[in-house]
Design a protein around this nucleic acid. Structure first.
Lengths: 243, 243
DNA sequence: ACCTGAACACCGTTCAAGT
DNA sequence: ACCTGAACACCGTTCAAGT
């Protein structure tokens, strides 16, 4: 059957849009476009109109594939979570695996800074949210934690991961707004501001803040993330029934 | 001096606006109005135009007292923090005092749910942010923690408090959006949704989520908050140099 | 110094009409 | 079923003009 749909067009023939056909939209295309805008220009740049523009159409066209902006954000979030790789669960090494999982999430959130803003307070119903949930919940339960407590621990760990990522994304937004382009430059300016501000505080009301300014700004985002993560992991370990 | 400004008008004379005078705006008035809208109608209802409307004027008038919406949000945030009461620091009871502090913050954030959205990633420069900072920083340092580490611990604790409050505020927003008015009703509907959804999951891929649904929804917001707080406090305690 | 109306450049979503 | 243009009801911020 020459010309059948199953036979691909020869590669040397330039693909062209059938003149009759309308734009070829799809949910996947919309999600990928949204994510591209999010990564390149940040949360505030992501609008339905902007996505539509990128796809050479009007905003109304998107609503055939996505019920609202909120749904688009959820889809983008789950799309990003698909980049998280999980190992085979090994309950005897639960702490190590939970740490690796957290660092893996941290890495993915760093690559897609602003996606965290779409994450909080959603019921995790996306394919990949469920994957994460099954992994951490199962790990804690199989390691011996009562399910009711495992649920609390999982919930708080997730909140920490997303909260930290969210804070990071706000810093990115500020960096963009201030016109700086390198994180270094932003970070230094940020630190300089803090130092100057705290040094000028009245010493009698804020003795500790004033006397230990240098320590106050010690530690970058990675240090802070890791410190908090270890606090939580140690707390969980202390509650894990002894084997 | 009859008619002097220092003499109040007699109470039986109805106060009236001097016909000549323009609106009597002030930063404080704008902040209080913004907070009232935030508490009553939520974050999404708080716009410069809405605040202006409430004050019988146009949005442009606000910009004489507030540089941008972002500054207004920061001012509202610090205004809310003014409601947080701190005890005299007693380093020998640092853990208890830190717990009380966290619960006090939690209480205030519950009364002003949506204010947490204005809080993340700001340099704490407001009067009251500084008060909180001096309290927790001083408490940890005086209890014997090296300042560099005290800074990390304080930072992570604050992130937890604000992150939890932020998540709570998103739940409020969803409740409002769904037209429900009582938190109970919302909470029950929310739980019912989760249970139904997880029960329908394919058991071979999500065995733990499916088998322990009831445990998954165990614990309300207070339980979850307290559990995470104790995780952090225990982690900090484990790092506190022995006396 | 403070306030204002009008305008600018945006939003998310709906809806009747087209194919 | 999918796509579209036009419209609705909003945004934050600026600016020249008023007092």
């Amino acid at each position: 059957m020459v010309g059948s749909k199953d036979v691909p067009a020869p590669p040397w023939r330039k693909p062209r849009r059938p003149p009759q056909a309308k734009r070829q939209l799809s949910q996947e295309l919309i999600v990928e476009t949204g994510l591209r805008i999010l990564d390149a220009e940040g949360f505030d740049a992501l609008s339905m109109r902007r996505v539509a523009q990128e796809l050479d159409t009007g905003p109304a066209s998107l609503y055939a594939h996505v019920s609202a902006k909120e749904e688009l954000l959820e889809l983008i979030y789950d799309r990003v979570l698909s980049e998280v790789r999980l190992p085979e669960p090994d309950p005897s090494r639960w702490k190590e695996q939970l740490r690796d999982y957290a660092q893996e999430m941290h890495r993915v959130f760093r690559d897609h800074a602003d996606v965290a803003r779409a994450a909080l307070a959603n019921i995790p119903t996306g394919e990949n949210s469920l994957r994460m949930g099954e992994f951490t919940y199962g790990l804690l339960i199989e390691a011996g934690m009562p399910p009711g407590e495992a649920s609390l621990a999982m919930d708080r760990l997730t909140l920490y991961l997303v909260g930290d990522a969210y804070e990071g994304s706000l810093h990115w937004a500020r960096m963009r707004a201030s016109g700086m382009s390198s994180p270094q430059e932003y970070f230094e300016a940020f630190v300089a501001q803090i130092v100057a501000y705290y040094r000028a505080l009245p010493v009698e009301r804020f003795p500790h803040l004033r006397d230990h300014v240098n320590d106050l700004i010690a530690g970058d985002g990675e240090d802070r993330f890791t410190y908090g993560l270890e606090l939580l992991l140690d707390g969980i370990e202390a509650r894990m029934p002894k084997t």
